[in-house]
Design a protein around this nucleic acid. Structure first.
Lengths: 240, 240
DNA sequence: GAGTGGTCTAGACCACTTT
DNA sequence: AAGTGGTCTAGACCACTCA
């Protein structure tokens, strides 16, 4: 296999990343401007510009007009967790997936859900209670509220076969999403559904989505027995 | 304030995003090639190319040579959680932060930590047990192992004043990181440290980092009383 | 006012992939 | 073999921001 030469803009990025990693360039160090970088690497300004722009987009450096570019000061690590459709996630492990709709009620608010969806008592809502199984073992309990004024078509869905998450992902676009992960004790009723002991640790994933910043779509609480479920994330520093 | 016209490549991105959001372009729909988009918008091919390339980088569309571009099929939502330095996170809430080193031992492996760091019994290691307080209430228990063959300078650190996370972030670059979040019951010893009841739910954040794919740096278990801590994430669809 | 980054163009060559 | 995306150039104008 012949070694293919990397594009110039990637070589420039690699070069700066290596110099940052080695400690030669420290957070706050200033970086040559587009024109100078272009001259150093013997390329057009546009090419140098692309390398530096992408480094800035990735948060590696900070650029300001007139003031020039500097190595960014990193204070936090970020982890990106993929939250897949539960059916695919279960099937990916080789287990058999099964879905069960436990309850479906229009107009059934809880005060928590009303607050989360910025709704009044009169706002039309669909409440769903669903259970997801892996090899016939309860894996996830899903408590969901859907605002019917935002998504009227949901009222015509039975959700007997297709889970609400799969349906919403395919039929309702979203502009904003909020996730929250916490650890709680299983209440008696949740524990009964999940066939675990009351008080057992649960990994609770809450999600809200919006059609646009003014229109909440759904609020969902996904409870998982602590032994079964975890969120995983693997990240690399920007490479090239 | 005069309304400033947006750059052409952003207008192109917005246009496609709007058409995707409206349902006019569905997952799998094909999208005109660079040249055609350039003609449609009356701009140079490079400009159209940048718009489409960025959409592809963001995962909105998929591009393949010869085959053209298509709207990507999204199956999962991704949430990006920022994992800050705990001291800053606590101070950001207005609470007072305090740090305490409970234990520091060289050569003290557990089998779990050895497995996570791909180490043998003879691999030199530093084990640390730390407690982080918010307003004098235990907030996070930190159990950490640092491979001293990878980071020899850690052996000279007392970690009495500066927490290991802050020190490592500033002194040891990393190329890869892995996070895992789960819910567990507090063991008796952990519960005692955190001044909670044994069996209480804990949000456990585990992290591993590598200097490069062959050199593990550290493995850490961060336990948080379920009532106090949660991971939060807010995301928007790519906007323009 | 001057320097820096941000964007755009017209033209070009190449590499990959499908037909 | 041909069409598509990926990259590069040389030159240009503009906008923002600091001195």
């Amino acid at each position: 296999m012949p070694h293919r030469e990397a594009p110039t803009y990637l070589r420039i990025k690699s070069d700066f990343l290596a110099r940052i990693r080695s400690g030669e360039l420290k957070p706050g160090s200033s970086i040559p401007g587009d024109a100078e970088v272009a001259e150093l690497f013997g390329c057009a300004r546009q090419t140098a510009h692309r390398a530096l722009r992408e480094l800035a987009d990735e948060g590696v450096i900070e650029r300001r007009r007139r003031a020039g570019s500097r190595v960014a000061l990193r204070t936090s690590q970020t982890a990106r967790f993929e939250i897949s459709r539960i059916d695919r996630e279960i099937e990916a492990t080789g287990a058999e997936y099964r879905y069960e709709l436990l309850d479906r009620q229009a107009g059934s608010w809880t005060s928590l859900a009303r607050e989360r969806l910025a709704a009044s008592r009169e706002t039309p809502v669909l409440h769903l209670l669903c259970l997801h199984f892996a090899n016939d073992v309860p894996f996830q309990l899903e408590e969901r509220w859907i605002r019917l004024d935002t998504v009227p078509s949901a009222a015509r869905q039975s959700f007997a076969e297709v889970g609400p998450n799969a349906w919403l992902l395919e039929h309702v676009p979203w502009s904003d999403a909020e996730h929250q992960v916490s650890a709680i004790s299983a209440s008696a009723s949740v524990a009964r559904r999940l066939r675990i002991d009351a008080g057992s640790p649960l990994l609770l994933l809450e999600r809200r989505t919006w059609l646009d910043p003014q229109q909440p779509v759904t609020y969902v609480r996904l409870s998982h027995p602590g032994d079964f479920y975890h969120l995983r994330s693997r990240a690399s520093q920007p490479k090239a």
